[in-house]
Amino acid sequence: MATLRGGDLSRLRQLNSLTAIGTLRGAGPLTLSALAERTGLSRPSMKEVVEELMRLGWVEETPPAQGGMGRPARRYRFRAGSGHLVGLDIGGHNIRAALADLDGVILAETRQPVQPDTPLPERLAAIGRAVASCLALGGKTIEDVWVVAAGTIGVITPEGRIFYCAAIPAWTGFDLAGHLREMFPCEIVVENDSRLAARAEAVRGAARGASDVVFLHVGRRMGAAIIIDGKVHRGFGAAAGEIAMLPQAQLFDASEHLQNCSIIPEGTSPADAAGYTIAAARAGDPVALAAVERYADDLAVGTSAMVLLLDPQVVVLGGGFSRSADVLLPPLRERLKRLCIRMPDVRASTLGDECVVTGAIDYAVAHLDHRLFTPDAPLPTSR
């Protein structure tokens, strides 16, 4: 079956195929009559559209519904497996990769450990290993991938270059998109990791249905992102959400309260230190509880500033520390109530550590929609 990568779109537009594809993607399997009704086309016209889409590999017939009298009507669905997407979370300590179909359904995930001081060649090699392992796990090759979407730390230019990165100094000035294009023969898009995480929470996580959101990316480092009127806000220079860089916001070093608590046993790895403190606080240890209170004090300063500025419907606590929301959210809520004119709904992430790589997949889906399924749409600037 033919694989379409955009070259046949002029023909598809002539057949109203973009409308049909969009309808099938949003509604699932439909009969010709139902599809014609939803698109406003006549049934004979829709039959021609569907036949052409099946020939091109975009649509397939589904097995007939069980039960009922008489011959069941044929039903059709978007062929999400006609191509694949890869999402990347390139962090300071881990590189996560996910493989998904064109609807964003994740099929396989892998992880490669790194360190903030890992040399660039080794970091790129780890990215390659993560993607290769993920593809092997999903039974695919890089030739099956249409888009690789990568999220990483720092201020990312629209072209995919890392303008500034405090957490990984060698990252500053690095042309990540350019190097990924040398590694992978497909479209590449790059975005800030916190914005991808916010997108994931809005699409399939704790912020679904919310139009104005502040996302707190909490872990061994701090990040933030904002959603305004249902859209992830990048800002004029793609630096929106970088409030942690303001010392007075008290966010950049907030995690030190949890990672350097005096009760942590000597020899505990940095990756486990904060978790040890939080577990001890959950068990009632007074020293650990005091550390959590200091952490909440700092976290509330920058968070309240964003809340007072944006008046969001929802604040989402996301990232690695969100798994400990039972310990962290109550003191944060208490402080926000004191500081904010209107208290937003403060929620824990439902995606945890997977928020960035999941958001990368959702970003790839959105890019593909814009690239292929929007009539006459220009290519995004991040291409």
Rank of each mutant, 00 (worst) to 15 (best):
A207Q: 10
R181N: 13
D193Q: 13
V214K: 08
V218S: 12
I226S: 10
C134H: 05
E159G: 15
H93Y: 01
T172H: 09
L135E: 06
E109Y: 15
P119Q: 13
P158V: 01
P185I: 10
A136M: 03
V105W: 07
V203S: 13
R123I: 04
I226Y: 01
A206P: 06
C165K: 14
A170W: 11
F174K: 01
G139H: 07
G151V: 02
L180T: 04
G104I: 08
I142S: 03
A207C: 04
G138Y: 00
L124D: 07
A126F: 05
Y164I: 00
A206K: 06
S194M: 04
D117G: 06
W171R: 13
D212Y: 05
G154N: 08
A170C: 09
G139D: 02
I227V: 14
R181P: 04
E109R: 13
F163W: 14
P158L: 01
I142L: 11
V189S: 05
R181V: 06
A130F: 00
D101F: 01
L176Q: 05
T141W: 00
A200P: 02
A177H: 01
R195V: 06
G178D: 14
R181F: 09
R195A: 14
Q112A: 07
V105Y: 12
L180W: 05
A197Q: 07
E191K: 14
A170D: 13
G173Q: 10
L137F: 00
E201L: 09
I228A: 15
N192Q: 11
S133Y: 00
D101I: 05
G128H: 11
I226G: 08
T141P: 01
T110L: 02
R208I: 05
T110D: 09
D175Q: 13
L120D: 04
S194L: 06
F163G: 04
A150L: 01
E187L: 08
E187A: 09
L120S: 10
G104N: 06
V131N: 06
I156L: 09
F184G: 01
H179R: 15
V189L: 10
C165W: 09
E143F: 09
I127N: 05
C134G: 08
G138K: 03
G128E: 13
T118R: 05
F215G: 01
L180C: 05
A197V: 05
R204N: 12
M183D: 04
A130P: 10
W146Q: 12
R111A: 10
A132C: 00
R199H: 07
I168R: 11
L196F: 04
D175K: 02
